[in-house]
Design a protein around this nucleic acid. Sequence first.
DNA 1: TTGTATGCAAATAATTTGCACCAAA
DNA 2: TTTGGTGCAAATTATTTGCATACAA
Lengths: 167, 167
Amino acid sequence: MTNSSESLEPLSVSLSPQERFEEYLQTRGLRQTNQRKFLIDAVFQEHDHFDADELIDRLPRRGEKNYVSSATVYRTLREFVDAGLLKSFQLDGRTVYELDYGYPQHDHLYCTVCRQLIEFQSRELMSIRDDVASEKGFRVSGHRMIIQGICRACGKLRRKKRKQDLV
Amino acid sequence: MTNSSESLEPLSVSLSPQERFEEYLQTRGLRQTNQRKFLIDAVFQEHDHFDADELIDRLPRRGEKNYVSSATVYRTLREFVDAGLLKSFQLDGRTVYELDYGYPQHDHLYCTVCRQLIEFQSRELMSIRDDVASEKGFRVSGHRMIIQGICRACGKLRRKKRKQDLV
DNA sequence: TTGTATGCAAATAATTTGCACCAAA
DNA sequence: TTTGGTGCAAATTATTTGCATACAA
């Protein structure tokens, strides 16, 4: 689990994720299927970070109504990323997804103890990014910044534990 | 391949990587084996970024002198990271390694066309990192910043190609 | 001598892909 | 009707692990 209790508020956007995806599909001659509609709802009920496995776990099982095969889940998650609805990145080997469409750009702190992702925003970070890139003649398409460490809560637990160990 | 033509110069350090690793092994009661000695030399002949597969490709094959099984390569790379000789991170799904011991801390620009990694250093980035972390009560152990985009060379090629396409 | 380390092959884990069948447009 | 989409199972890929054997301390 990488759910974060500290997530950012959605922005207001003119199209809903569903509408936005519809537009994406239409401009490419792709189809609106029940699976895609169902998955977009499932995904935008998420508030935080998730991976394919966690998502599949919360979806109907084989045989149940609205079952979607995992191959389709994987395929569709990639489409959502292409469509700009989700962002994805790698963490501890697995692919983590988060809502992108309608959410402000941000980066993450990652607690290596509880594996929680905490979001933060920094304008300065963006401007450093752009300065560095232009200095190297680089056309930026995006970036990924993750600060690893130990969060406040886990830090407290550790200190408590060390104290106990001394007793 | 993710070799970069623009890498940073080594710092001067009091112990060689070999000595440093020896120290690491001794303090933990681990053993100095021929494989470990051979691999540390092989790895520190690298100047840039590599993954396990690329390293194995340049190593002696099964049956040849100094052959090291890939299981051992994987195991040893992780030890090198533990020992602080190498750093590792994930890129496009695979684990990329780079020299750490004796090299200055830095981050990367990643060209999504030629897959080259270009290094850069920024003090400001570090200070933003520390500010953000302390604001959230986070004890930092490290970070990873990758700026994605298109490098100068690939940008030129693209423009040239577009021109040609118009003819 | 006493564990550690290694090589081998098998096991994992997370995705991806081939293909026959299904269903939007 | 046509072509893209889906489910299923098999294939992939990168890595890890179990275990018998080899070797450093």
